[in-house]
């Protein structure tokens, strides 16, 4: 990049704004982000049945409802339900090829071995040093955890790293995520604050339900490029 082009560009901006040279001191803010604003109303039916808004069970109920509203499915599960749940999804969507994160929680929940037991073709992200695009493209089911989840919108927040491939939650037509309740927050605000306190990861994705489009005569349909089906299972396990 030509340094002079850049300084001329910024010099022009500064002059137009009535300054002799580009501003170097951090400008003062009147308000920061959404500070002091009232967030969206939560479903009244839920607010009545839970006393504490910070209650984990309340957040979980809000999360499930929000995700269902946008066409996903979510449930709080006990560990012993997992084999039946996985089996059901594999049968329903006729899965034979799976891609998964290399993840401590998934291993703790014994998901890799459950998949192997069913005789599925399993690709674990991070186990091979080079990813072949044609290899990962085969997977019909992607299994991940999530770094955070947001109840208000029913969103998963996934961060890419060596073991957490960005593609796993994107390429397969079915996405299943197991998320510890400890990572569930009520609002996006808390997640953004956590992100601000660390070095920003190269890839952060907020995933809210299935991929969708209304580009053909405003007819809403799911799964044009990303997953058609999103299942989120919230668990006490960590």
């Amino acid at each position: 990049m030509d340094q002079t082009v850049e300084s001329e560009f910024l010099q022009n901006v500064a002059q137009r704004l009535g300054r002799n040279e580009p501003l170097r001191a951090t400008p003062k803010r009147i308000s920061l982000g959404a500070q002091g604003l009232t967030h969206s109303h939560l479903p009244e039916s839920l607010s009545e049945s839970y006393t504490e808004e910070t209650d984990v069970a309340f957040n979980a109920a809000v999360f499930c409802l929000s995700l269902e509203n946008v066409g996903g499915q979510a449930k709080v599960i006990a560990r012993n339900e997992i084999p039946a749940i996985l089996s059901d999804i594999v049968t329903r969507h006729q899965i034979h090829s799976v891609m998964q994160w290399k993840d401590a929680l998934l291993e703790h929940l014994e998901i890799p071995s459950l998949l192997h037991d069913r005789g599925l073709d399993v690709y674990t992200w991070g186990e091979e040093s080079v990813v072949s695009k044609t290899r990962i493209e085969k997977a019909q089911l992607g299994i991940t955890s999530a770094n955070y989840a947001i109840a208000e919108t029913g969103s998963l927040v996934v961060i890419g790293n060596h073991d957490q491939g960005r593609s796993v939650s994107l390429l397969p037509s079915v996405h299943v995520a197991f998320v510890p309740l400890t990572r569930l927050y009520l609002r996006a605000q808390s997640v953004l604050q956590e992100l601000q306190q660390q070095r920003m990861p190269a890839s952060v994705n907020f995933i809210t339900g299935p991929s969708r489009t209304s580009d053909i005569e405003m007819d809403s349909t799911i799964g044009v490029h990303g997953p058609k089906y999103v299942y989120v299972f919230l668990t006490d396990e960590t």
């Binding site: 919108t153 920003m200 890839s203 952060v204 994705n205 809210t208 339900g209 991929s211 209304s214």
Partner: peptide, 24 residues
Amino acid sequence: ATGQQLTSYVSLVTGAREPEELDG
């Protein structure tokens, strides 16, 4: 824009992939 509470994806991309990442 679309009357959604949030779009299906909000992607935050900061630079190229990290050296240890396998996609991106």
